[in-house]
Design a protein around this nucleic acid. Structure first.
Length: 731
DNA sequence: ATAGGGTTAG
């Protein structure tokens, strides 16, 4: 039993300390009402009845509040009867409770029937409508409130912020200043949050002046919100100064500063702060786990999750959804299934955040069926749950299912559009990509940096410079926030479309670069023929950044070496791969080396290199060697290589390009019998020389032209036009 | 009436 309750029961009050005793009861009532159990409350109520103090007016009010908190309307009504009907206080309690229970209309009815309303009644209704997203009605009451205290002003301001109307909130705040009502610390925390939501840092900074003027700079809540504001503004030093200067700090202050270090990627310092925190609660645990998961450190997030258990904290709903998100990133199906089972067992299922995380988790683990099962089980789906499912299908290339859901969605946001567009990009259905983009614009949805990165990726795949440039212009016009993803997509688009100058320009101007940005730039330079620059950039990266070389960069580096005849340098890079960078060379790297040696005529070395490979070489490696044999007219090695290629062909792991190359070599040596044998072989296997293909875009529609099979649906017109042009040119 | 924590797109 509750020890405080036990001690109360064992005390016998006398006349002298009776007042103190009632005080004690009152206090306990309050504490049980907010965090106790119904049983404790009923016990205490019984005791108060016995002692004859339950009819003391303020005790009775507390009892009423307690029963309302426990959502026991019958018991609450019993108490109300004792008041001989409703008075303002009872009315206000009932209004408050009904708002919490979602019965806003009942609250309004109670308000209307009040003979005399006070400030509390008005404020309850104003904030009640705000909580239910009914901003206009709330403001209607706000404007007619005869009392207009700081509290109702603040209720309106914070309500507007909650309803994503921060601009309106700031306008109300300015009116408040003109009205000569003094704002308080709650007002300031709300106003700071408003400028944070708006991203209006200038306003935020001027708020700091007002805070000092009104003397609230030493308030804990004000300082905490200022720290968050400074962090989001990038004023890290200022945030740290405010934190250091605070006389007292609470979990919120510590969590905010911890957040900063995770944000900066300084995990060591974050860990240190976390260990140093004088106090940790479930929220701070959840905060750090969530942040690690969001910032791309899923393994660390899971480690912390385990530690949280060890230290005796029980994860709550928000913590579990972060953990599921981390497991989704790691594609750890087993662990996620365990958590899913735990969730079902403890009966905390049915949370929309958890369910959305589960959908995403199953889809990322390629189990779209399980994801769909969770999705179908949700009775009240949100945009996010829809997005998870549509995105899940997109991710797995199930575009038909994805499109089907997309069309059925009751409302879409820019994540929805981005998800489906990304799916079509991944699936290389580029005409659909631009079709949907136009539809998106028509629907009035504003594309963001994510949407644009997908579109630019499509342009890069099509080497469509014109389209890419248009998009670049459009995204400047829309005022999209630049981020690493978008910058990288631009670099890639320009590089793959052959405009290496602009590619470099974007790269140089990026304030922050990640591994992909460097990879894409190094690759772009190498493949555009700027091999020295590519190699120089690779070296620069090793010295000036904290990014480690990766597999893809080394493919580019080796490619650059082989195309500029830097054989020895290339071989050196190849050898240092495992020894220095700790990257195990893959087939592609070996192929680059074979290519390097073959191009320079070191055919015997190349052959030996292939023979000594620790695993099955790529067909392309033989092709590269064959190509060298053709250039340097070495039929002996060509013969042996051809033999190997044929063996590969038997196993079925062979490309048609290899056959074509082989037949070309025989042809150039005049060995027509062999040529026809290969052609026959290709026919038997149903292989076709992959046909040439080119395309143009007209009005955002991509038209393909294939060299062999396909005729474009407007071919006759195209040829007619060509004939016309030729005729005019000849004249 | 207020501050710190949750799910989705690249």
């Amino acid at each position: 039993m509750n020890p405080a309750l036990k001690s109360l029961f064992s005390t016998n009050p006398n006349n002298k300390n009776f007042k103190f005793y009632v005080e004690k009861c009152n206090h306990l009532l309050k504490s049980i009402s907010s965090k106790g159990s119904v049983r404790e409350g009923t016990l205490l109520h019984g005791h108060l009845l016995k002692m004859g103090i339950s009819s003391e007016r303020y005790v009775a009010v507390k009892l009423l509040i307690m029963y309302l908190n426990f959502r026991k309307p019958a018991e609450a009504n019993e108490i109300v009867k004792k008041f001989n009907g409703f008075d303002a206080v009872v009315h206000n309690c009932m209004i408050d409770a009904n708002i919490r229970w979602g019965n806003i209309e009942e609250a309004r009815r109670l308000f209307d029937e009040m003979p005399e309303r006070n400030e509390v009644s008005w404020t309850a209704l104003i904030s009640g409508f705000m909580k239910h997203g009914r901003v206009e009605e709330s403001m209607w009451y706000f404007e007619r409130n005869p009392f207009q205290s700081v509290v109702s002003w603040t209720a309106a301001i914070s309500g507007l912020v909650q309803n994503r109307s921060s601009f309106e909130a700031l306008k109300v705040f300015l009116r408040l200043l003109e009205s000569e009502t003094k704002p308080n610390e709650v007002t300031f925390t709300s106003v700071v949050k408003a400028s944070l939501e708006l991203g209006n840092f200038r306003f935020g900074m001027s708020i700091i002046g007002l805070i000092v003027k009104f003397g609230f700079e030493n308030y804990l809540s004000v300082s905490n919100s200022l720290i968050t504001l400074c962090l989001r503004m990038g004023e890290i030093d200022l945030a740290r100064r405010i934190f250091d200067r605070m006389e007292q700090r609470d979990v919120v202050s510590w969590t905010a500063i911890l957040d900063m270090y995770v944000e900066m990627g300084d995990l060591g310092e974050a860990q240190r702060i976390f260990d140093e925190m004088p106090e940790r609660n479930v929220v701070s645990w959840c905060a750090i786990i969530a942040r690690y998961s969001q910032k791309g450190y899923p393994k660390e997030a899971l480690k912390l999750f385990r530690r949280m258990f060890e230290e005796g904290f029980k994860p709550n709903v928000s913590c579990l959804s972060s953990v599921l998100s981390a497991l989704a990133t790691l594609e750890n199906l087993r662990a996620g299934q365990n958590i899913h089972a735990q969730i079902l067992k403890t009966g905390i299922d049915g949370d929309i955040f958890i369910d959305s995380s589960l959908i995403d988790f199953y889809c990322k683990c390629r189990e779209t069926k399980d994801g769909r099962m969770v999705f179908d089980s949700i009775t009240e789906k949100t945009v996010v749950s829809w997005n998870c499912m549509v995105g899940g299908y997109s991710l797995n290339g199930q575009m038909e299912e994805g499109r089907d859901l997309f069309d059925k969605m009751p409302c879409r946001d820019n994540v929805t559009w981005s998800a489906i567009i990304a799916g079509y990009v991944e699936n290389k259905e580029f005409d659909k990509v631009f079709e949907l983009f136009n539809e998106m614009l028509l629907s009035g949805e504003t594309p963001n940096s994510s949407t644009f990165s997908s579109l630019l990726c499509a342009c890069a795949s099509m080497a469509s410079l014109e389209n890419g440039r248009n998009l670049h212009g459009k995204l400047i016009k829309v005022g999209v926030q630049y981020d690493v993803f978008l910058g990288t997509a631009l670099i890639d688009m320009y590089a793959k479309s052959g405009d290496i100058e602009n590619s470099k320009l974007v790269f140089d101007r990026m304030p922050k670069r990640n591994e992909v940005s460097w990879t894409v730039m190094i690759q772009g330079l190498a493949e555009s023929g700027f091999v020295e620059e590519s190699l120089a950039l690779f070296e620069e990266m090793k010295i000036t950044s904290s990014i480690a070389p990766n597999e893809l960069m080394l493919v580019s580096v080796l490619f650059a070496c082989s195309h500029s005849g830097l054989i020895n340098k290339g071989l050196q890079y190849f050898r240092s791969m495992e020894a220095v960078y700790g990257i195990k060379p893959k087939g592609r790297h070996y192929t680059c080396v074979v290519d390097m040696l073959s191009r320079s005529g070191r055919l015997y070395e190349a052959e030996e290199f292939i023979n000594n490979m620790p695993f099955q070489p790529e067909a392309n490696a033989f092709a590269a060697l064959l190509s060298g044999c053709k250039t340097y007219k070495n039929e002996e090695i060509a013969e042996r290589t051809a033999q190997k290629l044929c063996e590969l062909a038997e196993k079925g792991s062979f490309l048609s390009a290899g056959y074509v190359l082989l037949s070309n070599i025989y042809a150039s040596a005049g060995r027509w019998v062999d040529v026809s044998n290969i052609r026959k072989l290709m026919k038997e296997k149903g292989l076709k020389k992959s046909s040439g293909c080119s395309w143009v875009e007209v009005k955002n529609h991509v038209h393909f032209f294939h060299s062999e099979d396909g005729t474009h649906w407007k071919s006759p017109e195209v040829y007619e036009m060509l004939e016309l042009l030729r005729f005019e040119m000849v004249q």
